[in-house]
Amino acid sequence: MEGWIALYIFMLAAFTGIEVIRRVPAILHTPLMSGSNFIHGIVVVGGMVVLGMADTTAEIVVGFIAVFLGAGNAVGGYVVTDRMLEMFKSSDKTKKKE
């Protein structure tokens, strides 16, 4: 990929990340860290691509590890975040009842 274009993508993505998070209440810091932890689980896609082109045993083993770890990151990150947010939801409900 053209290096400069990549650099522009990185720059814009960095600003997006900062802007999206800037005014977040402190109570959401942990869920948010957990949520962003889930999002970088997208690395599993990269793992699938390298495993998909692996030929030698070493490549296949390491590629397998890449997919395994990436999938663990994504699924674990999702469940952890979901469990945290579930709690916010339940307290929302009690508030509405009153």
Binding site: A13, V20, M33, H40, I42, V43
Partner: peptide, 28 residues
């Protein structure tokens, strides 16, 4: 790291998701 891998593998979705998290995480 994920963002950089996205560059190497030429998958912009990885670049964007990785760097967004990198920037947001740094701020956090």
């Amino acid at each position: 790291a994920v963002g950089l891998k996205g560059y190497v593998l030429e998958i912009p979705a990885l670049m964007i998701a990785g760097i967004v998290v990198g920037a947001a995480g740094t701020l956090l």
